[in-house]
Simulated assay, not measured.
Amino acid sequence: MSRHLTSSPRSGHELFARPAAPDLRGHVLGYRGFRFGAIGVRRRLMIPDAVVKVMLGFGDPLRVVDPFEPARSASAVSLVNGARTTAAIGEHAGRIHGVTVLLTPLAAYRVFGAPLSEWANLSACPSAFGRTDLARLAECLAAVPDWETRFALLDRSLRALLGAGPAYSPEVAWAWSALRDSAGRVRVEALAAGTGWSRRHLERRFLLQTGLTPKGAAQVLRLQSALRLKESGASWADAAAQAGYHDQPHFDRTFKAMTGRTPTSFRADRTSASAQDAQDFVPGQITSAILPRC
């Protein structure tokens, strides 16, 4: 059953969320349906969260800007956003309407059937990854009259794509689970020993199938751990210590390097946003903040 997150009939603004079907939940983290009316230029800082997001759009284009490497910026009605180690900024100025599919990196490897190492930290339209069928899926979703039917269509489509895709290595899956379950606090040497591979071989295979290096994944997962702790009421210093940073200055430097913001400014952006803004699209993650209008 979908959950209505927020709506505003006056502005034509609505957000819906629904988990994937039970048999897909190890791979598909959920769906987010959205519709935004013409509300002026809107900018959302998207924090690294180790999730691949497939946005299938029915309205005006969305632009994703890479503040660290502007040449990587992209604009399209539908966009695939690979797993990132640095933040991006989503921008739109018109009416956008669509649904975002939240995939684990290993699920994305199966869905796209291509090395994720080729599109880490990238955003591009699905056809750039050889998936013109996703453009057709977006057209089918747009023609459906309600969110529940759209989400059911996504369940069926993703079940077929996952079933037909390449298998990922059990060793990579084990290493990913070890990092996820420890919130990034397992050393790469220990991961390599656990797989029986050399460190170099693990790094190559892990990057190929997740789009991240083991070290990069650990950095993202530690960042998310600190953000969840802060969200639950911890001070920045306590959150940094509990997430495995040497001290708060170490966390502050890492946060700025990964997001382009200080922890304090990021927190201020989140707390000043409208109550209608559902800022976190990924369950259990701190994923974004609405940026002030320029």
Rank of each mutant, 00 (worst) to 15 (best):
residue 181 D to H: 07
residue 69 E to V: 15
residue 192 A to S: 08
residue 138 A to W: 00
residue 134 L to E: 05
residue 271 T to W: 11
residue 268 A to I: 03
residue 237 A to V: 12
residue 220 V to A: 03
residue 83 A to C: 15
residue 123 S to A: 15
residue 162 L to P: 02
residue 66 D to N: 06
residue 79 L to W: 03
residue 274 S to L: 13
residue 270 R to Y: 01
residue 207 L to F: 12
residue 145 P to T: 10
residue 292 P to F: 08
residue 61 P to G: 04
residue 265 S to K: 13
residue 206 F to W: 05
residue 235 S to I: 00
residue 77 V to R: 14
residue 123 S to H: 07
residue 80 V to R: 05
residue 211 G to W: 00
residue 245 Y to N: 10
residue 151 F to H: 01
residue 123 S to P: 07
residue 250 H to I: 11
residue 189 E to K: 02
residue 265 S to Y: 10
residue 261 R to D: 14
residue 19 P to L: 09
residue 195 T to A: 04
residue 228 R to S: 08
residue 128 A to D: 09
residue 262 T to R: 08
residue 274 S to T: 11
residue 125 C to N: 09
residue 292 P to Q: 14
residue 134 L to W: 05
residue 240 A to I: 07
residue 61 P to I: 04
residue 171 E to D: 12
residue 58 F to A: 14
residue 87 A to F: 02
residue 224 Q to H: 02
residue 131 R to C: 13
residue 42 R to F: 11
residue 249 P to V: 08
residue 68 F to G: 05
residue 2 S to A: 14
residue 123 S to W: 06
residue 284 G to N: 06
residue 31 Y to T: 08
residue 294 C to W: 11
residue 128 A to T: 13
residue 237 A to Y: 05
residue 245 Y to T: 06
residue 107 A to C: 07
residue 166 P to E: 01
residue 220 V to R: 02
residue 201 H to N: 11
residue 56 L to P: 00
residue 95 R to L: 12
residue 66 D to P: 00
residue 145 P to F: 08
residue 57 G to S: 04
residue 43 R to H: 13
residue 183 A to V: 09
residue 11 S to I: 10
residue 287 T to W: 06
residue 125 C to L: 10
residue 170 P to I: 09
residue 156 R to H: 10
residue 238 D to V: 05
residue 52 V to I: 05
residue 27 H to F: 14
residue 148 E to H: 00
residue 180 R to P: 03
residue 194 G to K: 01
residue 51 V to S: 00
residue 7 S to C: 13
residue 57 G to C: 03
residue 253 R to F: 08
